[in-house]
Design a binder for these strands. Sequence first.
DNA 1: AATTAAATTTAGACAAAGCTAAAAATAGAT
DNA 2: ATCTATTTTTAGCTTTGTCTAAATTTAATT
Lengths: 231, 231
Amino acid sequence: MSNKNVFLEKYFLMTRSEENYLKTIFHLGGGDSKSITTNAIAEQMETKPSSVTDMAKKLSEKGLVDYVRYQGVSLTDAGVKTALSIIRKHRLWEVFLVKKLDFTWDEVHEVAEQLEHIKSEKLIDKIDELLEFPKHDPHGDPIPTKDGKFQERDEKLLSEMPINSQGVCVGVKDSSVPFLKFLDKNKIALGNTIKVLDKEDFDNSLRIQMDGKEMRISHQIAANLYVKKND
Amino acid sequence: MSNKNVFLEKYFLMTRSEENYLKTIFHLGGGDSKSITTNAIAEQMETKPSSVTDMAKKLSEKGLVDYVRYQGVSLTDAGVKTALSIIRKHRLWEVFLVKKLDFTWDEVHEVAEQLEHIKSEKLIDKIDELLEFPKHDPHGDPIPTKDGKFQERDEKLLSEMPINSQGVCVGVKDSSVPFLKFLDKNKIALGNTIKVLDKEDFDNSLRIQMDGKEMRISHQIAANLYVKKND
DNA sequence: AATTAAATTTAGACAAAGCTAAAAATAGAT
DNA sequence: ATCTATTTTTAGCTTTGTCTAAATTTAATT
């Protein structure tokens, strides 16, 4: 019961629950040294704030988050690294499910949610290799590198943007007359800021916000608009 | 909190621990209506008999084992079915790891031990399909069918036999003169009963028992001898 | 600056899965 | 048939992760 291997104890032996908390904190922005409230975490994870407090203490003990009572939590460098490794696994498994097993867009999340907790570095590296080192998951979100780097591509198709992200319109893929006319008619112009509010699984159409007003656009349109992500 | 869906509650929502117990009981022979002692289970699982007793009660509650105090446990039909579905998953994942990700013989078990608990029927069916419905895992053990049938092949290569299994020598694959001379010299003849005592991971050689005496044979030999399993 | 509303933490409880130590039942040997 | 020795179970405690309800701190408003 002695303190044999602090490194192993603190960083490798993560429980499923701990990993889920780190992932959530990262997604809520707590990797940018921003403090995330216990309430926000509780809401996201569909649990109670008091449970979050308990876990915050535990993760703080392990050096994975900075936690100040009543002030919320933010990930430490070690916490960010761990969160990224889980997100990497999640997204690689999503690619695997879609590319190798013909899962659809909307089926992958639940299963990847389980697979991301499998503990084997070799396994995920081999999956990465099998998939030929994909850069993005099926939703267009970037896959962190093995050494925990986030290679955020700053130009992408609007259809690949995650929900709640926003960017400036920087180009078109289809430059046909009908398409450009459509953009003009709908006051979509280069330089406009567009925020993705929601995606409809049924037809992949998007609800977006532009210049303060909301609108819905089809997947075909979104898949031909390049935007530069800025948040 | 009402008793909404008994089927779901009893059969689908299995914990990892419950699944591991069922698998162990099956492997110890408790599927053949034979009673397995709590001590045997505890030893196999590297836990304590008292913990096994607790779980026996729980699994009995759920209708997965028959448990009589001081008499041990045996799997019910539902228990056998569940155990086989876990074993099926374990073995399919092993094949996947070896065939698709270049894992070696000895690396697969630990990872498959985790993967077997992933809950997604579609996932394992798709893996099965990807692998073109293999009949045996990398160790030569049979993969149960989706509807829980064990298709024990009664003829297999000696090199594919699991440790502690035994069979009667029924044929050769390589019928070249040098090979047959070797068999003759070592008194290995059709009709002999051979028991696999141990496998050496390093060179895949086997320690076997034949006619009461022990000997070691290379993988190349074992991979060219057909035996008919009989226990 | 004081008071109230909202957010957060503490305290105490629970279920799952395990352990230890003591009690009870079975089985083996005489 | 009785008595040990072994096996098995019970009772009570531990840890992890969760919850509820009560207490406390922060923030917002007057």
